[in-house]
């Protein structure tokens, strides 16, 4: 079966971001960008399904600027067969991305779509669920285990109190949680081979999708800084401070 994986180019998770002085957003000039960590897990899961003989083709898709081709090439080096970039320079909302992905799903007709559970920049945790709603498919969000049998997929999900397993009819949408797998690294020969794999570039217009939004970001600020703390010398001093100064125990 065909598996579609969505990946996003985001600021690297180790970078401590800075808010721009004019409060218009976060400064991303000259900052290291990478594939969103949850998307890496999504790609890995698709590659493992192919290695098990369940998946026959992996198509990786990204919605973003032309530089997102780097992340698509990374996914190709990890084992995806071909890539699609829906090129759009502006920041889109999750709903707009979900609509673009829906158009790609209609075109490609995958049996399974795997996304990360959230992107570490917007922290929205929406796109997978929205894509499932627009496609009319079942959704297995926050997956820690994915098992395909026949025409259904059993997804074990990480929920607040522990784990829950649901069964979904295929085609279905899965979003990955951190513990689904440990993503592999791309080897140098595979990075070289990935350069020759097909990468198609589309536009929202070509897909006939409007990316208009009902949300507007008015400003972005730095969070309130915590006032500097003190170092105590002993456990006794710590207990004394907590009891008499902070009054929390």
């Amino acid at each position: 079966m065909k598996v579609l994986v969505a990946v996003k180019r985001v600021v690297d998770y180790n970078v401590k971001v800075r808010v721009k002085a004019d409060n218009s957003g976060v400064d991303l000039a000259n900052v290291k960008m990478s594939m969103n960590p949850f998307c890496e897990i999504a790609v890995e899961e698709a590659v493992r399904l192919k290695e098990k003989g369940v998946a026959t083709e992996i198509v990786v898709v990204s919605v973003g600027p032309s530089t997102a081709q780097e992340q698509l090439r990374t996914a190709l080096a990890l084992g995806a067969d071909r890539a699609i970039l829906v090129e759009n320079a502006e920041d889109l909302t999750s709903l707009a991305v979900a609509k673009l992905l829906k158009a790609v799903v209609d075109k490609e007709q995958p049996q399974l779509v795997i996304l990360g559970k959230q992107a570490i920049d917007s922290d929205n945790n929406q796109t997978g669920q929205m894509l499932a709603a627009l496609s009319g498919y079942g959704q297995g969000t926050f997956a820690s285990k994915v098992e395909i049998s026949g025409d259904s997929v059993a997804v074990t999900r990480e929920v607040d109190g522990g784990a829950q397993t649901v069964s979904l009819k295929l085609p279905a949408i899965v979003t990955t949680d951190l513990r689904l797998n440990e993503p592999r690294y791309a080897s140098l020969p595979n990075i070289m081979k990935a350069k020759k794999k097909p990468l198609e570039v589309l536009t929202p217009d070509a897909l006939g999708v409007s990316t208009a939004s009902t949300n507007k970001t008015i400003k972005v600020e730095a969070p309130a800084a915590r006032s500097a703390g003190i170092k105590v010398k002993s456990v006794a001093e710590l207990v004394e401070k907590l009891k008499n100064e902070a009054k929390v125990i």
């Binding site: 922290d123 669920q129 929205m130 999900r157 929920v159 009902t214």
Partner: peptide
């Protein structure tokens, strides 16, 4: 914004064709 809320609400927003505001 619990695992339930995060699971259900974006599906509601898409059905209503509106953007969601998370957390």
């Amino acid at each position: 914004a619990t695992s339930n809320g995060k699971n259900i609400l974006p599906r509601v927003a898409a059905a209503l064709d509106v953007d969601q505001i998370s957390e």
